[in-house]
């Protein structure tokens, strides 16, 4: 809040900082964070990680871009409506358990199997991954929507 900043001695609160170092490094770090987010997401089933953490981390990467550049630039980079992102995530997360009725199994019943892929060897395939994709999209969309709402209010 601006009044708090004023009390702390800031005479003028600057709107946007054009920091060359921040902008350049964030271009690199953005991809590292996104990759780590996907790594966490796919690690989710047997080791710590999953859709929620991955989604938050992906949102954090985009928020880094928001800090380094301004909102217009980021909107040009990623022309996504976050409401649609949330709705898509919810459809995937809620639609998959509903589909299990088609197979005659109760709500939320998952199927899984193991397949052999040339390079990686034996890989587990689990229908819960699709559910997690929904969670990933919803969480990332919610976090970004909240940040966007706060940023818009500040104009």
């Amino acid at each position: 809040m601006k009044s708090t900043l004023k009390k702390a001695g800031y005479s003028k609160v600057q709107k946007q900082v054009h920091d060359v170092f921040l902008q350049f490094t964030s271009k690199v770090i953005f991809f590292i964070i996104i990759l780590f987010a996907f790594k966490l997401f796919f690690a989710g089933h047997y080791t710590p990680g999953g859709g929620f953490v991955g989604g938050l981390l992906a949102a954090a990467a985009i928020i880094l871009l928001l800090i380094a550049f301004d909102q217009k630039t980021v909107e040009k980079m990623l022309p996504i409506d976050f409401r649609i992102l949330i709705a898509t995530g919810l459809v995937i997360a809620a639609g998959l358990p509903t589909l299990s009725f088609l197979f005659g199994t109760p709500f939320f019943t998952h199927q899984h199997t193991y397949i052999t892929v040339p390079v990686f060897g034996e890989v587990a395939l689990h229908s819960a991954v699709i559910f997690d994709v929904g969670v990933f999209l919803t969480v990332a969309g919610t976090a970004l929507l909240i940040i966007k709402l706060i940023a818009e209010e500040d104009d």
């Binding site: 409401r83 649609i84 949330i86 709705a87 919810l90 459809v91 809620a94």
Partner: peptide, 10 residues
């Protein structure tokens, strides 16, 4: 109601 809400979000 949940799915109706999602449809309306779309």
């Amino acid at each position: 109601p949940f799915f109706a809400g999602i449809i309306m979000l779309f």
